[in-house]
Design a binder for these strands. Structure first.
Lengths: 264, 264
DNA sequence: CCCGCTGTTCCATTATTTGGAACACAATTT
DNA sequence: AAATTGTGTTCCAAATAATGGAACAGCGGG
Protein backbone atom coordinates (compact mmCIF):
# COMPACT_ATOMS: atom_id res chain seq x y z
CA UNK A 1 0.00 0.00 0.00
CA UNK A 2 2.76 2.39 0.91
CA UNK A 3 4.45 2.61 -2.43
CA UNK A 4 6.39 5.82 -2.17
CA UNK A 5 7.38 8.04 -5.06
CA UNK A 6 10.52 6.04 -5.50
CA UNK A 7 12.79 7.32 -2.80
CA UNK A 8 14.01 4.32 -0.89
CA UNK A 9 14.29 0.78 -2.16
CA UNK A 10 11.37 -0.54 -0.22
CA UNK A 11 8.74 -3.18 -0.63
CA UNK A 12 10.65 -6.43 -0.62
CA UNK A 13 8.37 -8.87 -2.29
CA UNK A 14 8.25 -11.22 0.64
CA UNK A 15 10.27 -14.32 0.14
CA UNK A 16 10.56 -13.92 -3.60
CA UNK A 17 12.16 -10.51 -3.30
CA UNK A 18 14.87 -11.77 -1.02
CA UNK A 19 15.66 -14.71 -3.20
CA UNK A 20 15.74 -12.59 -6.33
CA UNK A 21 18.08 -10.13 -4.69
CA UNK A 22 20.36 -13.05 -4.04
CA UNK A 23 20.09 -14.29 -7.60
CA UNK A 24 20.89 -10.83 -8.85
CA UNK A 25 23.87 -10.63 -6.55
CA UNK A 26 25.39 -13.80 -7.92
CA UNK A 27 24.43 -13.08 -11.50
CA UNK A 28 25.90 -9.58 -11.47
CA UNK A 29 29.16 -10.58 -9.88
CA UNK A 30 32.29 -10.82 -11.95
CA UNK A 31 32.74 -14.52 -11.53
CA UNK A 32 31.73 -17.62 -9.62
CA UNK A 33 31.09 -16.98 -5.93
CA UNK A 34 31.74 -19.16 -2.98
CA UNK A 35 29.37 -19.39 -0.09
CA UNK A 36 31.46 -17.07 2.02
CA UNK A 37 31.70 -14.45 -0.70
CA UNK A 38 27.96 -14.31 -0.88
CA UNK A 39 27.59 -14.35 2.87
CA UNK A 40 29.75 -11.27 3.16
CA UNK A 41 27.60 -9.34 0.70
CA UNK A 42 24.15 -10.50 1.57
CA UNK A 43 23.68 -9.51 5.21
CA UNK A 44 21.80 -12.64 6.04
CA UNK A 45 22.50 -15.30 8.60
CA UNK A 46 24.35 -18.33 7.38
CA UNK A 47 21.53 -20.78 7.86
CA UNK A 48 19.07 -18.69 5.93
CA UNK A 49 21.47 -17.92 3.15
CA UNK A 50 22.39 -21.52 2.76
CA UNK A 51 18.81 -22.66 2.40
CA UNK A 52 18.02 -19.95 -0.11
CA UNK A 53 20.99 -20.93 -2.22
CA UNK A 54 19.95 -24.56 -2.11
CA UNK A 55 16.51 -23.57 -3.30
CA UNK A 56 17.89 -21.49 -6.15
CA UNK A 57 20.09 -24.38 -7.23
CA UNK A 58 17.20 -26.83 -7.07
CA UNK A 59 15.23 -24.53 -9.31
CA UNK A 60 18.06 -24.27 -11.80
CA UNK A 61 18.41 -20.54 -11.37
CA UNK A 62 21.85 -20.99 -9.91
CA UNK A 63 24.30 -23.80 -10.36
CA UNK A 64 26.80 -25.16 -7.95
CA UNK A 65 29.91 -25.96 -9.93
CA UNK A 66 32.39 -28.72 -9.31
CA UNK A 67 34.61 -26.36 -7.33
CA UNK A 68 31.81 -25.58 -4.93
CA UNK A 69 31.08 -22.15 -6.34
CA UNK A 70 27.78 -20.65 -7.36
CA UNK A 71 27.20 -19.52 -10.94
CA UNK A 72 24.09 -18.35 -12.80
CA UNK A 73 21.98 -21.26 -13.95
CA UNK A 74 21.00 -22.22 -17.45
CA UNK A 75 17.32 -22.23 -16.73
CA UNK A 76 17.57 -18.48 -17.03
CA UNK A 77 18.53 -18.90 -20.66
CA UNK A 78 15.48 -20.91 -21.45
CA UNK A 79 13.15 -18.50 -19.72
CA UNK A 80 14.76 -15.51 -21.35
CA UNK A 81 14.80 -16.91 -24.84
CA UNK A 82 11.07 -17.29 -24.68
CA UNK A 83 10.61 -13.90 -23.20
CA UNK A 84 12.56 -12.44 -26.05
CA UNK A 85 11.14 -14.49 -28.88
CA UNK A 86 7.62 -13.42 -28.00
CA UNK A 87 8.18 -9.80 -27.14
CA UNK A 88 5.51 -7.81 -28.92
CA UNK A 89 7.45 -4.61 -29.37
CA UNK A 90 10.50 -6.39 -30.64
CA UNK A 91 8.49 -8.31 -33.21
CA UNK A 92 6.84 -5.18 -34.52
CA UNK A 93 10.10 -3.29 -34.65
CA UNK A 94 12.27 -5.93 -36.27
CA UNK A 95 11.70 -5.02 -39.95
CA UNK A 96 12.40 -1.35 -39.30
CA UNK A 97 15.64 -2.21 -37.59
CA UNK A 98 16.66 -4.21 -40.60
CA UNK A 99 15.91 -1.27 -42.86
CA UNK A 100 18.00 1.03 -40.72
CA UNK A 101 20.81 -1.47 -40.71
CA UNK A 102 20.77 -1.73 -44.48
CA UNK A 103 20.57 2.00 -44.93
CA UNK A 104 23.48 2.71 -42.63
CA UNK A 105 25.56 -0.41 -42.76
CA UNK A 106 26.13 0.00 -39.04
CA UNK A 107 24.82 -1.77 -35.95
CA UNK A 108 21.25 -0.98 -35.01
CA UNK A 109 19.69 -1.35 -31.56
CA UNK A 110 16.26 -1.36 -29.99
CA UNK A 111 16.24 -0.49 -26.31
CA UNK A 112 13.59 -0.04 -23.67
CA UNK A 113 13.61 1.94 -20.45
CA UNK A 114 13.34 -0.08 -17.28
CA UNK A 115 13.85 1.86 -14.10
CA UNK A 116 17.08 3.78 -14.58
CA UNK A 117 18.51 1.45 -17.19
CA UNK A 118 18.11 0.77 -20.85
CA UNK A 119 17.68 -2.87 -21.66
CA UNK A 120 18.63 -3.79 -25.20
CA UNK A 121 15.82 -5.73 -26.73
CA UNK A 122 17.33 -6.30 -30.12
CA UNK A 123 20.44 -5.68 -32.12
CA UNK A 124 21.21 -6.09 -35.78
CA UNK A 125 24.76 -5.99 -36.93
CA UNK A 126 26.20 -5.44 -40.36
CA UNK A 127 28.25 -8.32 -41.56
CA UNK A 128 29.36 -11.22 -39.47
CA UNK A 129 27.23 -10.79 -36.40
CA UNK A 130 28.90 -13.12 -34.03
CA UNK A 131 28.27 -11.95 -30.51
CA UNK A 132 24.69 -11.05 -30.23
CA UNK A 133 23.67 -12.16 -26.80
CA UNK A 134 26.54 -10.16 -25.42
CA UNK A 135 24.46 -7.10 -26.06
CA UNK A 136 20.85 -8.18 -26.11
CA UNK A 137 19.52 -8.19 -22.61
CA UNK A 138 22.31 -6.00 -21.33
CA UNK A 139 21.24 -3.22 -19.05
CA UNK A 140 23.06 0.07 -19.62
CA UNK A 141 22.70 3.39 -17.84
CA UNK A 142 20.22 5.89 -19.30
CA UNK A 143 22.44 8.91 -19.04
CA UNK A 144 25.23 7.83 -21.34
CA UNK A 145 23.48 5.98 -24.14
CA UNK A 146 21.69 7.46 -27.13
CA UNK A 147 18.64 5.30 -26.61
CA UNK A 148 18.60 6.16 -22.92
CA UNK A 149 18.63 9.88 -23.46
CA UNK A 150 16.11 9.66 -26.26
CA UNK A 151 13.77 7.70 -24.01
CA UNK A 152 14.11 10.18 -21.17
CA UNK A 153 13.38 13.06 -23.53
CA UNK A 154 9.83 11.89 -24.07
CA UNK A 155 8.96 11.19 -20.46
CA UNK A 156 6.67 13.66 -18.70
CA UNK A 157 8.61 16.30 -16.78
CA UNK A 158 7.47 15.12 -13.39
CA UNK A 159 8.92 11.71 -14.11
CA UNK A 160 12.25 12.84 -15.52
CA UNK A 161 13.26 15.14 -12.71
CA UNK A 162 13.19 12.63 -9.86
CA UNK A 163 14.68 9.93 -12.06
CA UNK A 164 17.58 12.18 -13.02
CA UNK A 165 18.15 13.28 -9.45
CA UNK A 166 18.38 9.72 -8.25
CA UNK A 167 20.98 8.62 -10.76
CA UNK A 168 24.54 8.06 -9.72
CA UNK A 169 26.66 9.35 -12.54
CA UNK A 170 29.57 7.10 -13.34
CA UNK A 171 32.14 8.75 -15.57
CA UNK A 172 32.82 6.07 -18.17
CA UNK A 173 34.70 8.43 -20.48
CA UNK A 174 35.71 12.10 -20.40
CA UNK A 175 32.53 12.85 -22.36
CA UNK A 176 30.08 11.17 -20.02
CA UNK A 177 27.49 13.55 -18.60
CA UNK A 178 28.33 14.04 -14.97
CA UNK A 179 25.28 15.53 -13.30
CA UNK A 180 21.53 15.63 -13.34
CA UNK A 181 21.67 19.24 -14.49
CA UNK A 182 23.84 18.42 -17.45
CA UNK A 183 21.49 15.62 -18.35
CA UNK A 184 18.35 17.74 -18.06
CA UNK A 185 20.00 20.42 -20.16
CA UNK A 186 20.84 17.88 -22.85
CA UNK A 187 17.29 16.55 -22.83
CA UNK A 188 16.07 20.02 -23.84
CA UNK A 189 18.24 19.92 -26.95
CA UNK A 190 17.06 16.43 -27.71
CA UNK A 191 13.43 17.48 -27.50
CA UNK A 192 14.15 20.24 -30.01
CA UNK A 193 16.06 18.16 -32.53
CA UNK A 194 14.20 14.90 -32.03
CA UNK A 195 17.37 12.84 -31.88
CA UNK A 196 19.86 11.97 -29.17
CA UNK A 197 23.56 11.63 -29.77
CA UNK A 198 26.06 9.59 -27.85
CA UNK A 199 29.41 11.26 -28.47
CA UNK A 200 31.65 8.62 -26.96
CA UNK A 201 29.91 9.02 -23.64
CA UNK A 202 29.71 5.37 -22.74
CA UNK A 203 32.73 3.99 -24.51
CA UNK A 204 35.58 5.83 -26.14
CA UNK A 205 35.56 5.47 -29.90
CA UNK A 206 31.85 4.65 -30.09
CA UNK A 207 29.24 7.10 -31.26
CA UNK A 208 25.55 6.76 -31.91
CA UNK A 209 22.35 8.52 -33.04
CA UNK A 210 19.07 7.54 -31.47
CA UNK A 211 15.41 8.46 -31.71
CA UNK A 212 12.73 7.78 -29.14
CA UNK A 213 9.92 5.28 -29.60
CA UNK A 214 7.08 5.36 -27.11
CA UNK A 215 3.41 4.79 -26.49
CA UNK A 216 1.24 7.40 -24.86
CA UNK A 217 0.00 4.94 -22.27
CA UNK A 218 3.55 4.40 -21.05
CA UNK A 219 3.63 0.70 -21.80
CA UNK A 220 6.70 1.27 -23.91
CA UNK A 221 9.36 3.93 -23.59
CA UNK A 222 12.55 3.33 -25.48
CA UNK A 223 14.25 4.05 -28.74
CA UNK A 224 16.20 2.89 -31.73
CA UNK A 225 19.80 3.75 -32.47
CA UNK A 226 22.56 3.42 -35.01
CA UNK A 227 25.91 2.76 -33.39
CA UNK A 228 29.42 2.51 -34.69
CA UNK A 229 33.07 3.48 -34.43
CA UNK A 230 33.75 7.21 -34.20
CA UNK A 231 36.04 7.23 -37.22
CA UNK A 232 33.20 6.12 -39.45
CA UNK A 233 30.41 7.90 -37.62
CA UNK A 234 31.64 11.42 -38.15
CA UNK A 235 29.39 14.21 -37.02
CA UNK A 236 28.37 14.78 -40.64
CA UNK A 237 27.39 11.15 -40.93
CA UNK A 238 25.30 11.33 -37.81
CA UNK A 239 23.67 14.46 -39.14
CA UNK A 240 22.79 12.63 -42.36
CA UNK A 241 21.05 9.91 -40.41
CA UNK A 242 18.89 12.07 -38.19
CA UNK A 243 16.08 12.16 -40.72
CA UNK A 244 15.98 8.43 -41.49
CA UNK A 245 16.14 7.46 -37.86
CA UNK A 246 13.38 9.85 -36.92
CA UNK A 247 11.28 8.49 -39.75
CA UNK A 248 11.96 4.95 -38.65
CA UNK A 249 10.93 5.77 -35.10
CA UNK A 250 7.74 7.33 -36.39
CA UNK A 251 6.98 4.32 -38.58
CA UNK A 252 7.50 2.01 -35.63
CA UNK A 253 5.12 4.03 -33.52
CA UNK A 254 2.55 3.96 -36.30
CA UNK A 255 2.94 0.21 -36.54
CA UNK A 256 2.53 -0.17 -32.81
CA UNK A 257 -0.64 1.88 -32.91
CA UNK A 258 -2.06 -0.28 -35.67
CA UNK A 259 -1.14 -3.55 -33.99
CA UNK A 260 -2.08 -2.65 -30.47
CA UNK A 261 -5.03 -0.37 -31.01
CA UNK A 262 -5.52 3.08 -29.59
CA UNK A 263 -3.14 2.47 -26.71
CA UNK A 264 -0.18 3.82 -28.61
CA UNK B 1 16.59 -35.86 2.13
CA UNK B 2 14.16 -38.01 0.24
CA UNK B 3 15.28 -37.27 -3.28
CA UNK B 4 13.93 -40.20 -5.21
CA UNK B 5 15.47 -41.60 -8.35
CA UNK B 6 13.43 -39.23 -10.41
CA UNK B 7 10.07 -40.91 -10.57
CA UNK B 8 7.56 -38.33 -9.43
CA UNK B 9 7.97 -34.60 -9.65
CA UNK B 10 8.50 -34.06 -5.97
CA UNK B 11 10.34 -31.66 -3.76
CA UNK B 12 8.67 -28.34 -4.41
CA UNK B 13 11.16 -25.78 -3.32
CA UNK B 14 8.85 -24.16 -0.86
CA UNK B 15 7.52 -20.84 -2.00
CA UNK B 16 10.12 -20.39 -4.69
CA UNK B 17 9.17 -23.61 -6.42
CA UNK B 18 5.55 -22.63 -6.69
CA UNK B 19 6.34 -19.21 -8.01
CA UNK B 20 8.80 -20.56 -10.54
CA UNK B 21 6.27 -23.08 -11.77
CA UNK B 22 3.98 -20.17 -12.38
CA UNK B 23 6.65 -18.21 -14.18
CA UNK B 24 7.38 -21.20 -16.34
CA UNK B 25 3.71 -21.61 -17.12
CA UNK B 26 3.38 -18.08 -18.40
CA UNK B 27 6.74 -18.07 -20.13
CA UNK B 28 6.09 -21.29 -21.99
CA UNK B 29 2.62 -20.38 -23.14
CA UNK B 30 2.05 -19.39 -26.73
CA UNK B 31 1.05 -15.86 -25.94
CA UNK B 32 0.01 -13.38 -23.29
CA UNK B 33 -2.21 -14.90 -20.61
CA UNK B 34 -5.05 -13.38 -18.71
CA UNK B 35 -5.60 -14.02 -15.08
CA UNK B 36 -8.30 -16.55 -15.76
CA UNK B 37 -6.21 -18.47 -18.27
CA UNK B 38 -3.55 -18.93 -15.65
CA UNK B 39 -6.06 -19.76 -12.97
CA UNK B 40 -7.42 -22.59 -15.06
CA UNK B 41 -3.97 -24.12 -15.48
CA UNK B 42 -2.43 -23.53 -12.11
CA UNK B 43 -4.71 -25.35 -9.68
CA UNK B 44 -4.37 -22.66 -7.07
CA UNK B 45 -7.01 -20.57 -5.38
CA UNK B 46 -7.64 -17.17 -6.86
CA UNK B 47 -6.37 -15.19 -3.92
CA UNK B 48 -3.09 -17.04 -3.79
CA UNK B 49 -2.56 -16.94 -7.50
CA UNK B 50 -3.24 -13.28 -7.65
CA UNK B 51 -0.71 -12.42 -4.99
CA UNK B 52 1.94 -14.60 -6.59
CA UNK B 53 1.43 -12.88 -9.92
CA UNK B 54 1.67 -9.49 -8.28
CA UNK B 55 4.95 -10.52 -6.73
CA UNK B 56 6.33 -11.76 -10.02
CA UNK B 57 5.37 -8.50 -11.67
CA UNK B 58 6.93 -6.45 -8.90
CA UNK B 59 10.13 -8.37 -9.39
CA UNK B 60 10.09 -7.78 -13.14
CA UNK B 61 9.92 -11.47 -13.94
CA UNK B 62 6.50 -11.00 -15.45
CA UNK B 63 4.90 -7.93 -16.91
CA UNK B 64 1.29 -6.92 -16.92
CA UNK B 65 0.59 -5.41 -20.29
CA UNK B 66 -1.82 -2.63 -21.10
CA UNK B 67 -4.52 -5.14 -22.00
CA UNK B 68 -4.31 -6.71 -18.58
CA UNK B 69 -2.44 -9.78 -19.70
CA UNK B 70 0.67 -11.33 -18.26
CA UNK B 71 3.81 -11.68 -20.36
CA UNK B 72 7.38 -12.70 -19.54
CA UNK B 73 9.35 -9.83 -18.06
CA UNK B 74 12.47 -8.21 -19.37
CA UNK B 75 14.41 -8.72 -16.21
CA UNK B 76 14.85 -12.26 -17.41
CA UNK B 77 16.84 -10.94 -20.35
CA UNK B 78 19.25 -9.12 -18.15
CA UNK B 79 19.78 -12.09 -15.87
CA UNK B 80 20.20 -14.46 -18.78
CA UNK B 81 22.60 -12.32 -20.73
CA UNK B 82 24.94 -12.34 -17.78
CA UNK B 83 24.50 -16.02 -17.24
CA UNK B 84 25.41 -16.59 -20.84
CA UNK B 85 28.26 -14.12 -21.13
CA UNK B 86 30.06 -15.73 -18.23
CA UNK B 87 29.42 -19.38 -18.90
CA UNK B 88 32.70 -21.19 -18.53
CA UNK B 89 32.05 -23.98 -20.97
CA UNK B 90 30.76 -21.64 -23.61
CA UNK B 91 33.81 -19.43 -23.34
CA UNK B 92 36.17 -22.35 -23.68
CA UNK B 93 34.28 -23.81 -26.59
CA UNK B 94 33.76 -20.65 -28.62
CA UNK B 95 36.95 -20.77 -30.75
CA UNK B 96 36.36 -24.38 -31.68
CA UNK B 97 32.86 -23.61 -32.78
CA UNK B 98 34.18 -20.87 -35.00
CA UNK B 99 36.64 -23.30 -36.57
CA UNK B 100 33.88 -25.78 -37.25
CA UNK B 101 31.75 -23.07 -38.75
CA UNK B 102 34.53 -21.96 -41.05
CA UNK B 103 35.36 -25.49 -42.05
CA UNK B 104 31.78 -26.38 -42.90
CA UNK B 105 30.18 -23.10 -43.78
CA UNK B 106 27.09 -24.27 -41.92
CA UNK B 107 25.55 -23.40 -38.58
CA UNK B 108 27.31 -24.76 -35.54
CA UNK B 109 25.79 -25.35 -32.12
CA UNK B 110 26.91 -26.04 -28.59
CA UNK B 111 24.31 -27.73 -26.43
CA UNK B 112 24.18 -29.04 -22.90
CA UNK B 113 22.00 -31.68 -21.31
CA UNK B 114 19.63 -30.45 -18.61
CA UNK B 115 17.13 -32.99 -17.42
CA UNK B 116 15.52 -34.40 -20.53
CA UNK B 117 16.26 -31.40 -22.72
CA UNK B 118 19.16 -29.98 -24.61
CA UNK B 119 19.70 -26.31 -23.97
CA UNK B 120 21.56 -24.53 -26.72
CA UNK B 121 24.40 -22.59 -25.19
CA UNK B 122 25.83 -21.13 -28.34
CA UNK B 123 25.27 -20.93 -32.04
CA UNK B 124 27.42 -19.63 -34.83
CA UNK B 125 25.90 -19.06 -38.21
CA UNK B 126 27.55 -18.62 -41.55
CA UNK B 127 26.80 -15.31 -43.11
CA UNK B 128 24.24 -12.85 -41.88
CA UNK B 129 23.41 -14.25 -38.49
CA UNK B 130 20.27 -12.42 -37.71
CA UNK B 131 18.20 -14.46 -35.33
CA UNK B 132 20.49 -15.74 -32.70
CA UNK B 133 18.53 -15.57 -29.52
CA UNK B 134 15.78 -17.51 -31.20
CA UNK B 135 17.98 -20.54 -30.80
CA UNK B 136 20.32 -19.84 -27.93
CA UNK B 137 18.65 -20.76 -24.72
CA UNK B 138 16.05 -22.87 -26.44
CA UNK B 139 15.35 -26.18 -24.85
CA UNK B 140 14.86 -29.03 -27.30
CA UNK B 141 14.11 -32.70 -26.66
CA UNK B 142 17.08 -35.05 -26.33
CA UNK B 143 15.70 -37.80 -28.50
CA UNK B 144 15.43 -35.92 -31.78
CA UNK B 145 18.49 -33.71 -31.85
CA UNK B 146 22.02 -34.64 -32.77
CA UNK B 147 23.47 -33.01 -29.70
CA UNK B 148 20.86 -34.67 -27.51
CA UNK B 149 21.59 -38.16 -28.74
CA UNK B 150 25.33 -37.59 -28.62
CA UNK B 151 25.05 -36.43 -25.01
CA UNK B 152 22.96 -39.45 -24.02
CA UNK B 153 25.46 -41.78 -25.65
CA UNK B 154 28.14 -40.91 -23.10
CA UNK B 155 25.99 -41.14 -20.01
CA UNK B 156 26.45 -44.18 -17.76
CA UNK B 157 23.97 -46.93 -18.57
CA UNK B 158 22.13 -46.68 -15.29
CA UNK B 159 21.38 -43.05 -16.05
CA UNK B 160 20.30 -43.47 -19.67
CA UNK B 161 17.76 -46.23 -19.14
CA UNK B 162 15.47 -44.44 -16.70
CA UNK B 163 15.84 -41.19 -18.57
CA UNK B 164 14.82 -42.82 -21.84
CA UNK B 165 11.92 -44.63 -20.23
CA UNK B 166 10.54 -41.41 -18.82
CA UNK B 167 10.54 -39.52 -22.09
CA UNK B 168 7.34 -38.84 -23.91
CA UNK B 169 8.12 -39.22 -27.58
CA UNK B 170 6.56 -36.55 -29.69
CA UNK B 171 6.64 -37.36 -33.40
CA UNK B 172 7.85 -34.13 -34.94
CA UNK B 173 8.51 -35.69 -38.34
CA UNK B 174 8.13 -39.15 -39.88
CA UNK B 175 11.77 -39.77 -38.96
CA UNK B 176 11.52 -38.95 -35.27
CA UNK B 177 12.44 -41.82 -33.00
CA UNK B 178 9.24 -43.02 -31.43
CA UNK B 179 10.21 -45.17 -28.46
CA UNK B 180 12.76 -45.67 -25.74
CA UNK B 181 13.85 -48.90 -27.40
CA UNK B 182 14.51 -47.21 -30.71
CA UNK B 183 16.47 -44.53 -28.90
CA UNK B 184 18.56 -47.00 -26.90
CA UNK B 185 19.26 -48.94 -30.07
CA UNK B 186 20.43 -45.80 -31.81
CA UNK B 187 22.66 -44.90 -28.89
CA UNK B 188 24.54 -48.14 -29.42
CA UNK B 189 25.38 -47.13 -32.97
CA UNK B 190 26.40 -43.70 -31.80
CA UNK B 191 28.77 -45.16 -29.24
CA UNK B 192 30.41 -47.19 -31.98
CA UNK B 193 30.79 -44.42 -34.52
CA UNK B 194 31.38 -41.57 -32.11
CA UNK B 195 28.94 -39.26 -33.87
CA UNK B 196 25.19 -38.76 -33.76
CA UNK B 197 23.12 -37.90 -36.80
CA UNK B 198 19.85 -36.10 -36.95
CA UNK B 199 18.21 -37.21 -40.19
CA UNK B 200 15.35 -34.73 -40.27
CA UNK B 201 14.11 -36.06 -36.95
CA UNK B 202 13.22 -32.75 -35.40
CA UNK B 203 12.39 -30.68 -38.43
CA UNK B 204 11.84 -31.77 -42.01
CA UNK B 205 14.60 -30.60 -44.28
CA UNK B 206 17.13 -30.17 -41.49
CA UNK B 207 19.99 -32.57 -40.88
CA UNK B 208 22.89 -32.49 -38.49
CA UNK B 209 26.04 -34.27 -37.27
CA UNK B 210 26.98 -34.03 -33.64
CA UNK B 211 29.69 -35.27 -31.31
CA UNK B 212 29.53 -35.48 -27.54
CA UNK B 213 31.50 -33.26 -25.20
CA UNK B 214 31.58 -34.19 -21.55
CA UNK B 215 33.52 -34.18 -18.31
CA UNK B 216 34.02 -37.30 -16.26
CA UNK B 217 32.71 -35.62 -13.14
CA UNK B 218 29.39 -35.00 -14.85
CA UNK B 219 29.51 -31.24 -14.54
CA UNK B 220 29.07 -30.99 -18.27
CA UNK B 221 27.32 -33.34 -20.65
CA UNK B 222 26.52 -32.01 -24.06
CA UNK B 223 27.85 -31.79 -27.54
CA UNK B 224 28.64 -29.79 -30.63
CA UNK B 225 26.87 -30.06 -33.94
CA UNK B 226 26.86 -28.88 -37.52
CA UNK B 227 23.37 -28.24 -38.79
CA UNK B 228 21.95 -27.32 -42.15
CA UNK B 229 19.41 -27.93 -44.89
CA UNK B 230 19.14 -31.51 -46.10
CA UNK B 231 19.83 -30.60 -49.72
CA UNK B 232 23.27 -29.34 -48.79
CA UNK B 233 23.97 -31.78 -45.98
CA UNK B 234 23.88 -34.94 -48.03
CA UNK B 235 24.81 -38.14 -46.29
CA UNK B 236 28.22 -37.98 -47.98
CA UNK B 237 28.75 -34.51 -46.63
CA UNK B 238 27.84 -35.62 -43.13
CA UNK B 239 30.22 -38.52 -43.49
CA UNK B 240 32.99 -36.11 -44.47
CA UNK B 241 32.48 -34.12 -41.34
CA UNK B 242 32.50 -36.95 -38.83
CA UNK B 243 36.24 -36.75 -38.39
CA UNK B 244 36.53 -32.98 -37.96
CA UNK B 245 33.65 -32.84 -35.54
CA UNK B 246 35.04 -35.67 -33.45
CA UNK B 247 38.39 -33.92 -33.41
CA UNK B 248 36.78 -30.67 -32.39
CA UNK B 249 34.94 -32.39 -29.57
CA UNK B 250 38.17 -33.95 -28.40
CA UNK B 251 40.00 -30.63 -28.54
CA UNK B 252 37.27 -29.00 -26.52
CA UNK B 253 37.49 -31.69 -23.87
CA UNK B 254 41.25 -31.26 -23.75
CA UNK B 255 40.81 -27.53 -23.33
CA UNK B 256 38.29 -28.05 -20.55
CA UNK B 257 40.69 -30.36 -18.76
CA UNK B 258 43.46 -27.80 -18.97
CA UNK B 259 41.31 -24.90 -17.84
CA UNK B 260 39.41 -26.66 -15.11
CA UNK B 261 41.98 -29.05 -13.82
CA UNK B 262 41.61 -32.76 -13.29
CA UNK B 263 37.82 -32.57 -13.09
CA UNK B 264 37.39 -33.18 -16.78
C1' DC C 1 47.35 -32.61 17.14
C1' DC C 2 45.12 -28.48 17.36
C1' DC C 3 43.39 -24.37 15.27
C1' DG C 4 40.93 -21.54 12.05
C1' DC C 5 38.25 -21.41 8.04
C1' DT C 6 34.49 -23.00 5.40
C1' DG C 7 30.22 -25.07 4.69
C1' DT C 8 26.09 -27.68 6.57
C1' DT C 9 22.33 -29.08 9.66
C1' DC C 10 18.91 -28.46 13.39
C1' DC C 11 14.74 -26.60 15.52
C1' DA C 12 11.91 -23.41 18.42
C1' DT C 13 10.40 -18.82 17.16
C1' DT C 14 8.57 -15.68 13.93
C1' DA C 15 6.79 -14.02 9.72
C1' DT C 16 4.70 -15.21 5.39
C1' DT C 17 1.72 -17.66 2.59
C1' DT C 18 -2.65 -19.67 2.13
C1' DG C 19 -7.40 -20.00 0.53
C1' DG C 20 -12.20 -19.28 1.18
C1' DA C 21 -15.37 -15.79 0.73
C1' DA C 22 -16.84 -11.29 -0.09
C1' DC C 23 -16.26 -7.39 -2.98
C1' DA C 24 -15.95 -4.52 -7.25
C1' DC C 25 -16.45 -3.77 -12.03
C1' DA C 26 -17.48 -4.61 -16.84
C1' DA C 27 -19.52 -6.88 -20.52
C1' DT C 28 -23.46 -9.48 -22.06
C1' DT C 29 -28.01 -11.00 -21.92
C1' DT C 30 -32.92 -10.70 -20.90
C1' DA D 1 -32.76 -0.66 -17.95
C1' DA D 2 -32.16 -4.53 -14.85
C1' DA D 3 -30.21 -8.84 -14.14
C1' DT D 4 -26.58 -12.01 -14.95
C1' DT D 5 -22.30 -13.78 -15.89
C1' DG D 6 -17.44 -13.39 -16.26
C1' DT D 7 -13.12 -11.27 -14.44
C1' DG D 8 -10.14 -9.40 -11.47
C1' DT D 9 -9.06 -7.72 -6.63
C1' DT D 10 -9.09 -7.46 -1.56
C1' DC D 11 -9.40 -9.32 3.25
C1' DC D 12 -8.08 -12.00 7.26
C1' DA D 13 -7.87 -16.08 10.58
C1' DA D 14 -5.56 -20.47 10.04
C1' DA D 15 -1.85 -23.11 8.19
C1' DT D 16 2.68 -23.22 6.60
C1' DA D 17 7.14 -21.93 5.51
C1' DA D 18 11.15 -18.94 6.48
C1' DT D 19 14.20 -17.34 10.00
C1' DG D 20 18.51 -17.25 12.52
C1' DG D 21 21.27 -18.59 16.38
C1' DA D 22 23.99 -22.18 17.67
C1' DA D 23 25.95 -26.48 17.27
C1' DC D 24 28.11 -29.69 14.09
C1' DA D 25 31.23 -31.45 10.39
C1' DG D 26 35.30 -31.44 7.28
C1' DC D 27 39.62 -29.98 5.91
C1' DG D 28 44.02 -27.90 5.28
C1' DG D 29 47.88 -25.77 7.47
C1' DG D 30 50.85 -24.73 11.21
Amino acid sequence: MARGKGASRESETGTLGKVMALLELVTHSDGPMRFTDILALSSQPRGTLHRQLVHLVEEGLLEFDADGRYVPGLRLLDLASRSWARNEFRLITEPYLKDLQQMSGETVHLGVLRGTSIIYLDKIEGRQSVRMYSQIGNASPVYCTGVGKAALSVLPDDAVEPLARNLSFNRFTPHTLGSADALLQELKTIRETGVALDREEHELGIRCVAAAVWTVDGSFTGGVSITGPAYRLTLERLEEWTTPIKQAAQSIMDAIRIRLGPRG
